[in-house]
Design a protein around this nucleic acid. Structure first.
Lengths: 212, 212
DNA sequence: AAAATATCGATATAAAAATATCTATAATGG
DNA sequence: CCATTATAGATATTTTTATATCGATATTTT
């Protein structure tokens, strides 16, 4: 018999960070407990959705009439989302967007630590953004292996995206966060998350159409 | 009897820009026709999904054994996605991310035109990024109404996001593209699309977990 | 010209996600 | 102390989305 790994659905994973944000805001206001109804109210979600989502987190010890302890729930969510032990990542493409992401302080709160950046432009290699060093692309395979990094962030122009992707995969990267407006071809066993502005915009336009 | 408006599902809206990108690549290579099987192959999607998605676009005139005409399908998608007649938008918060988005040339291909930017920092008001002028926040209500803009892009720090959101809604904005890591409270009739890095990252981590 | 094949478009089925319902229980108010 | 109430947690239902199947048809092969 095959044991099925219980894994939270994508929709749940997307919502959890939002709950965490709302809960931290409550903690800041010294709120001690919260119900799924209250969370649903804030996030515009059906309480049943919130209940089910929190059941995946596992730290479920909600009490009837009371709800959940805010602090405990925050701890549970942070653990579940892996925010405590940081995952290391490399970033490729130190253009405008690359620089923006490199200097973004928020990632460390999400358990992501960009340990090195790379660019084909040899004039930027050797420089750095904040405490992050920028290397020449040629150094990538060696460094990725030495630092044992598993996530690559692609912020190169679309023409270069596939080539960079191939280099990352060859270097042993298992997860790719792609900000280039291009579809990447990857072998099985590589996780890709596309940050697609056009798709987001299409979604917003669609919602707007329903309103106006 | 109530007539139901046929509207493409969110999942479809998110995929269409990807098809368009792939089709343009084919056009560039002088490919004349394409089947849903071929598109699905490129995009890692079941052909049935592609078929249904394209059926929403309406320009469906695929022929058995042949597929769709690439050029016609591109035109259909661009029309459906509203890429021909640009929607105007304002951007609020000219920090690192704001500047990156202001100087991004790609939006015009997606039918979005940022016509003005705003910031509370009075020292940046009066300056500009490229051909885009930056105004003081105090000017926002007047300009939004005068320019008849319906979309607002929020790129301010999270502490300021809700306040900016309220100002936008008061000014008559109907759609909000929110890049701040904060949940916005809006009245009914306002479309909000959150660009949530934490959620994206959670999704990637989840996919990775399934692999490693 | 007939047979084989690829693909569309429609429909049926399956899977996933959201919503509703129900029971048990902890707190509150009389 | 008992009735009321809000809510958890489980389960059932509905809705949405994805996948599979099937007949029709345009093209290619024999």
């Amino acid at each position: 018999m095959i044991s099925k790994v219980v894994c939270a659905p994508v929709a749940t994973m997307r919502r959890l960070p939002g709950y965490l944000r709302a809960l931290k805001e409550m903690e800041r206001k010294n709120q001690k407990t919260v119900s799924t109804v209250a969370i649903g109210d804030i996030m515009n979600l059906n309480p049943a959705v919130v209940k089910k989502d929190l059941s995946y987190v596992g730290s479920s010890d909600g009490k009837p009439k009371i709800g959940f302890e805010v602090t405990a729930l925050i701890a549970g969510l942070e653990k579940f989302l892996g925010y405590n032990d940081a995952t290391e990542a490399v970033l490729i493409g130190v253009g405008r967007l690359g620089r923006t992401l490199l200097s973004y302080e928020g990632f460390k709160n999400y358990g992501l630590n960009i340990v090195a950046a790379f660019d084909v432009d040899k004039s930027v290699a050797g420089t750095g953004i904040g405490n992050k060093k920028i290397f020449d692309m040629a150094e990538l395979p060696r460094l990725v292996k030495r630092l044992n990094v598993h996530i690559g962030i692609i912020t190169v122009p679309k023409q270069a995206a596939q080539e960079v992707c191939d280099i990352l995969v060859d270097a042993g990267i298992k997860g790719i966060w792609n900000f280039a407006p291009a579809h990447l071809k990857t072998p099985d066993g590589i996780a890709v998350k596309n940050e697609d502005m056009a798709a987001s915009l299409a979604e917003l336009s669609n919602k707007l159409k329903g309103i106006v």
